[in-house]
Design a binder for these strands. Structure first.
Lengths: 265, 265
DNA sequence: ACTACTAGTTCCAAATAATGAAACTTAGTT
DNA sequence: AACTAAGTTTCATTATTTGGAACTAGTAGT
């Protein structure tokens, strides 16, 4: 299920193991990892040793169990601030959620999945770490389809080939052909919908965030429920959203290399 | 400055490079990395290729610059939820900040530094992603000293030997001997102070969070300013804080292996 | 106390992957 | 066109990783 495209020598294997530890979602014993691992005992053992020495996983001697290490949290702090769209898009995301009063998602592609890098819920203040970082399928979410639709054909196909096409709801697109047709429609329309394709009662309207060169940087969606809105009524928000998305794209484009980012403990 | 104890073969080097990319705090060119790297051009190049293919760094072809990748954010999300104290301690941290009306820091050791994994400011609602993940020195912060003081001598010395002992303020402890004396005092007293040792006007009182077996799991501090409090007056909070810290330790101890952690997109 | 088992750790010769100097390819200048 | 700097590939050499098996420590059964 969680098979990353390993194969980059030792580093790939180590990261593979790291993902495995992450996958358990709890401290995990050596033997549990071994059972689920393609690597022989000695190899897995040393990979874990290395990762532990590097602080990427931590070993709890009391319980003799491995879990993800704190170095990851530190790295992610930087990652979030620097590489992702989130800090740049934040003002616009804030503004949108306030203006529209609906949930805003900001996402980027992570391999063949959608990774949510920010989420704003108008109603209650959000808790970042517990919301951002989640992943979702690309073929049945608004942001997923928005990003896919504007990708180069080659990459699009690569990702489509990795989708599970599980039928979450009656409206979920369950074949590559259906998805391709829908993506073409999205491009024609200028944005994507999620017509309860992932969860019943949940609909959304989503836009790609494109660089000046036309590359897909991420996606932004406004999510609502069928009780409050229809796909039709969501469309009234299009001008507002488009303005925000364009603004984000512009900010990303202009960011380049700022003089410095202060970093103090 | 940011030299991790590399030396674990290829994986260590790759993670070293990852740290370097993180260190720049912005998208960075190959040649910039090369200048700051101990590795030869071809080696660095391939390490970056591998990391990129693995999603740990992302390469922006428009600007030909590397930045931290989204896979890191995903991993960190899990790391924070699973391995760190933060989610377990959260209720107590919340309660403390509400009750005392002061800033609460929750930290763990990351190698020889203090890593803040949660921060609650009574005044303004939290900004998790931008606050947690920060690092600070161990020798001149309350949480740092609290954690150091209760560590086994051997590990304590290892960490002490890695401190910079930079004199931030007039009260900063600038020698290993002074620090050792202070740590002994902390153990006698049962908690640690920060007497404006890191920033002028900022004081705090800090406790270690210990496992049943006596291992240091983390540290918790209440931070205030000299205008509002003295070290003396902070001590009135000791019973409240100790109760909370004991409760956190208990929660950690009881956690072990919960049935399941739900994870849904 | 003895034996059998399981979990975790270490060994070492063989297999594999990483290395880095240098050559090469682009992209950008004068 | 000639020059330069930045990035990429090659390939023989070198160093690390590999994994079967042997070993150790801890636990349970008789």
């Amino acid at each position: 299920m969680s098979d990353t495209a390993q194969g980059d020598g030792t580093v790939g294997k180590a990261l593979d193991v790291l993902d495995q530890v992450a996958g358990f979602g709890r401290p995990v014993r050596f033997s549990e990892l071994l059972d689920a691992s393609p690597y022989p005992k000695a190899t897995l053992y040393r990979l874990l040793q290395t990762l532990t020495k590097q602080g990427m996983v931590s070993f709890d001697p009391d319980r003799s169990a491995y879990s993800l290490g704190v170095r990851l949290v530190r790295l992610a702090h930087r990652a979030w601030r620097q590489s992702s769209l989130a800090p740049l898009a934040r003002p616009q995301v804030d503004a949108l959620s306030r203006t529209l009063g609906e949930t805003v998602h900001l996402a980027q592609m992570d391999n063949a999945q959608v990774l949510y890098v920010d989420k704003r819920n108008a109603a209650k203040p959000i808790e970042m770490y517990s919301q951002a970082g989640k992943v979702g399928p690309a073929y049945c979410t608004g942001v997923g389809k928005a990003m896919l639709a504007w990708m180069p054909a080659e990459e699009q196909e690569r990702i489509i080939s990795q989708q599970s096409f599980h039928g979450f709801t009656p409206t979920t697109l369950t074949t590559a052909e259906d998805l391709r047709a829908e993506l073409a429609e999205c491009v024609r329309r200028g944005f994507a919908f999620d017509n309860e394709e992932h969860e019943p009662g949940i609909i959304c309207i989503a836009f790609p965030i494109l660089s000046g060169a036309g590359r897909v940087m991420g996606g932004l969606s406004i999510t609502s429920t069928t009780t409050r809105h229809s796909l039709q009524s969501l469309q009234t928000m299009v001008p507002t959203i488009r303005t925000a998305v364009d603004r984000i794209a512009e900010d990303v484009e202009n960011w380049r290399f700022p003089d410095e980012i202060k970093e103090r403990a």
